[in-house]
């Protein structure tokens, strides 16, 4: 009994310290702490009048506004809400990236299967890849207009070059042994693509998708700010023109958080798909 009563508090202490250590190691905790600090500083800045509350409204006004559920800007046809705008922008990124992935996959398959095409296609892709996605905006608006298709096209152009190059590089980088062995085991052309090449390039392809997501995300927002008449970027420009700085701030934060969340989701999908990578 005696020993029981003496080592009990010890055990409690180790349990607590372990719990504290676990919490301290949690990324989520530090993420929340960092943001709390920013919000506090921001509030303090407004309170002390270091910041002009007209231009940068304090969190105590901005946060309730963000959750009031009734955020929208503009009149009549031009009226757009935060959630609607976000959904539109996300759909554009999604469709544009899917189209980009589809076309670049086809290009990569053709380049690998037809050596002649490699010589022809690769220089084009290589010269497209370094073009900054935003550079396509004026061209697109002039050619396609200011509708949703223009935004999708900008995303598509933003990802096409880099994605094709990454996919081709990943395919070229497959260890020769895998292909030799697969060929030797009597693998048909279709099965070679589906069961050998595709899984072998998945790590490279997933990285390419994550990287091009950032490019696409920036490009579509820039496009929406530069003239396309809907979406999150458009909402921010509209809020700025109507001097609703709270909404501008909320829009900026939404861009950050959604970008961050999608990157995390892609990372999660990555970990799920790629458990086999050492």
């Amino acid at each position: 009994m005696q020993s029981h009563s003496t080592d009990r508090p010890d055990r409690q202490i180790t349990l607590i310290s372990r719990f504290v250590r676990l919490i301290l190691q949690s990324n989520l905790l530090w993420f929340c702490l960092a943001w709390l600090l920013i919000i506090l500083l921001w509030e303090l800045g407004s309170y002390m009048e270091w910041l002009n509350p007209q231009i940068l409204p304090p969190p105590s006004e901005t946060i309730p506004y963000a959750f009031s559920g009734n955020i929208s800007i503009g009149f009549g046809q031009q009226r757009t809400g935060l959630f609607e705008a976000t959904a539109i922008t996300l759909a554009r990124v999604g469709i544009g990236m899917l189209a980009g992935l589809l076309v670049s996959s086809c290009l990569a398959v053709m380049v690998i299967e037809l050596p002649l095409l490699r010589r022809l296609v690769l220089p084009i892709v290589q010269s497209l890849a370094p073009i900054a996605p935003v550079a396509w905006i004026p061209f697109t608006i002039a050619v396609i207009g200011i509708g949703g298709q223009a935004a999708v096209f900008i995303v598509f152009m933003a990802v096409l070059g880099t994605m094709s190059l990454s996919l081709i590089a990943a395919l070229d980088g497959i260890p020769a042994e895998y292909l030799k062995i697969a060929r030797n085991l009597g693998t048909s052309r279709m099965r070679m693509w589906w069961h050998v090449r595709l899984p072998a390039i998945t790590p490279g392809a997933m990285t390419a998708i994550r990287m091009s997501f950032f490019g696409a995300w920036m490009a579509v927002l820039a496009g929406e700010m530069a003239g396309i008449n809907s979406g999150l970027g458009y909402m921010i420009i509209m809020a700025q023109q109507m001097y609703n700085m709270k909404l501008v701030m909320i829009g900026i934060l939404a861009i950050g958080f959604i970008g961050f969340a999608i990157d995390r989701l892609l990372l999660l999908a990555n970990a799920r798909l790629l458990q086999w990578v050492q």
Binding site: P175, E177, Y178, K180, I181, A182, L185, G186, T187, S188, R191, H195, V196, P199, A200, T202, W276, V277, Q278
Partner: peptide, 23 residues
């Protein structure tokens, strides 16, 4: 070969079954 014999994305069983599926 010395290395890279098994496809790392397949389990041991899937690796062995692969040529049989090819047939």
């Amino acid at each position: 070969f010395q290395t890279h014999n098994l496809f790392p994305w397949m389990t041991a069983e899937e690796n062995v079954a692969f040529p049989l599926r090819n047939q």
